[in-house]
Every structure is written in structure tokens, then in C-alpha cells.
Amino acid sequence: MTTFLTRGDRVLFQGDSLTDWGRDRSDPSSLGHGWAGIAAALAGARRPELGLTFHNRGVGGDTAALVRDRWEADALALEPTVISLLVGVNDTWRRYAQGQVTSVEAYEEHYRALLDSARERLDARFVLVEPFLLPRTAQQAAWREDLDPRIAVVRRLADEYGAVLLAADTLFAEATIVAGAAHWTTDGVHLTPAGNGLLAEAWLDTLGING
């Protein structure tokens, strides 16, 4: 059975709180209890013959610039063969919550720097998870004007770098038609258990690791 992942792959989940999700910072092997931990557990259960290794280095609150600041220690030094990256919603959130504006151009520059260094140093393969928003209020719905261009950046970079794209924003937009935003998210961004499960299943399906 062919999948994106190959035998012996070292997979790194990287990003913000959506990836971090309660991981134990004192334990380098901790994967947290969110979607990344679920995806790693199911990948190991479904394809044990691949001998996959997983790391989670997500940090809550991180923007693309903050991920870049720790990229050497929290990505390159781990020498992953596959990097799954989800970052961007905090670049939007901080604009509306704190007045800290990161232009779309700066976001792309930071994101591109992450990919370039990992490709040049490690020849890593990428899974790019687009940032997403499930608005719970009319005020939050206005965030779209800032987030949608960032989603477009991730989609364009996925194509340019030959990465696998997980269209998470589309995934959750369709899911809210079925069950409503409150079923999937607590605040428009952070996920419920069902939301974490849905994203984990989508990650596995996108990489061909089906149940």
C-alpha cells in the first residue's frame, strides 16, 4: 500500500497551540493530546511496518515569525524527513486582539524561509496545513479579510514547493454545514475533541493512511 510516508520517516508536527495542545515540554517525546497526537497514534497503529517516529514542537501563541525564531532548535536540529506545518491564525488573531499587524508579505517571507531552510539542509518533504477559522461571532467573521490571504499564501507555497496540502479551512467550512461551528471549535480557532478528531483523520487521509 503506497502512502506519502515511507519506512523510517521522522515526522515533525510544527506550529502554534493547535499543534502544541498540552504537550509536556519536559518530555521530548510528548505529542500532546490534540490532533497531532491522535494522527501519530493512528498512523503507528495502521502502518506499524513503516516504523515511523513522531515529534511535536508546536508552541501556543506562535506566529510565523516566532516559529522562524526557534526553527533551528525545534525543527532543523531534529533532522525530520517530513515536516507538517500549521501556522498563521495567530498572525491574524493578534491584529484584532492586540493591534499587532503582520502583513501578508511578511507572513509569506517567514513561511518561505522555513521551507527553504528545511529543504536545503534536510531535503525534507512537507505537509502544509492551511490555517482555518470557524467564526463564532459576527466580529470574528470579519477576521476573514486578514486570514483568507494567508490561506492563499499557504496554498500557493504548497504548489510551488511540491508539498502535500491539507485544505483544513475547506474541511471545517464543510463540517460546519453538517454540525455547526460549536461542534468543532470552542472559540472559532481551538478545536473540540470532535474537531481534533476530524483534523487528525483528514491528515491521515490526505497522506493515504486510511483505516
Rank of each mutant, 00 (worst) to 15 (best):
195 G>F: 04
122 L>D: 05
66 L>M: 15
166 L>G: 01
7 R>Y: 12
75 A>Q: 10
82 V>Q: 00
142 A>Y: 08
174 E>W: 09
166 L>H: 03
83 I>A: 13
179 A>N: 14
5 L>G: 00
167 A>P: 15
36 A>D: 06
76 L>G: 09
125 R>W: 01
76 L>S: 11
80 P>S: 11
65 A>Q: 15
7 R>N: 10
87 V>E: 08
44 G>C: 13
168 A>N: 12
198 L>I: 06
34 G>Y: 05
168 A>Y: 12
149 P>V: 05
78 L>G: 02
136 R>K: 13
97 A>H: 14
199 L>D: 03
104 V>H: 12
37 G>M: 04
204 L>V: 02
75 A>N: 09
210 N>W: 08
34 G>Q: 08
86 L>G: 01
186 T>L: 13
13 F>T: 06
53 T>P: 06
40 A>G: 05
200 A>V: 00
152 A>T: 11
101 V>N: 13
20 D>Q: 07
122 L>M: 04
118 A>P: 02
73 A>I: 03
108 E>Y: 10
176 T>M: 15
156 R>D: 14
187 D>V: 05
207 L>I: 10
20 D>I: 07
1 M>I: 12
153 V>L: 04
23 R>N: 03
35 W>G: 05
87 V>R: 07
168 A>K: 09
111 Y>M: 14
189 V>P: 12
53 T>W: 08
131 P>F: 03
121 R>S: 14
34 G>W: 05
204 L>N: 01
61 G>W: 03
9 D>R: 00
81 T>N: 00
21 W>V: 11
90 N>C: 02
86 L>D: 06
49 E>V: 10
58 G>S: 07
8 G>W: 00
45 A>L: 11
123 D>C: 05
191 L>S: 13
37 G>Q: 05
206 T>E: 09
175 A>S: 14
144 R>M: 09
80 P>N: 11
23 R>G: 02
11 V>F: 00
41 A>H: 09
76 L>W: 07
206 T>S: 11
63 T>P: 12
42 L>A: 13
107 Y>A: 11
16 D>Y: 07
156 R>F: 04
56 N>L: 03
84 S>V: 10
197 G>E: 14
92 T>I: 04
145 E>C: 08
60 G>F: 11
68 R>T: 15
90 N>Q: 02
134 L>S: 13
47 R>H: 11
55 H>L: 12
196 N>I: 06
203 W>R: 01
15 G>Y: 04
127 V>G: 05
30 S>V: 09
88 G>I: 00
103 S>I: 02
57 R>E: 06
131 P>K: 03
152 A>P: 05
200 A>W: 01
121 R>T: 15
168 A>D: 13
199 L>F: 06
165 L>S: 03
134 L>H: 11
171 L>D: 06
176 T>S: 14
130 E>K: 07
157 L>V: 09
40 A>H: 00
135 P>M: 09
27 D>M: 09
55 H>E: 09
152 A>I: 02
91 D>K: 01
24 D>F: 06
24 D>I: 05
172 F>Q: 09
176 T>D: 14
165 L>W: 03
35 W>V: 01
37 G>T: 02
54 F>N: 05
89 V>F: 12
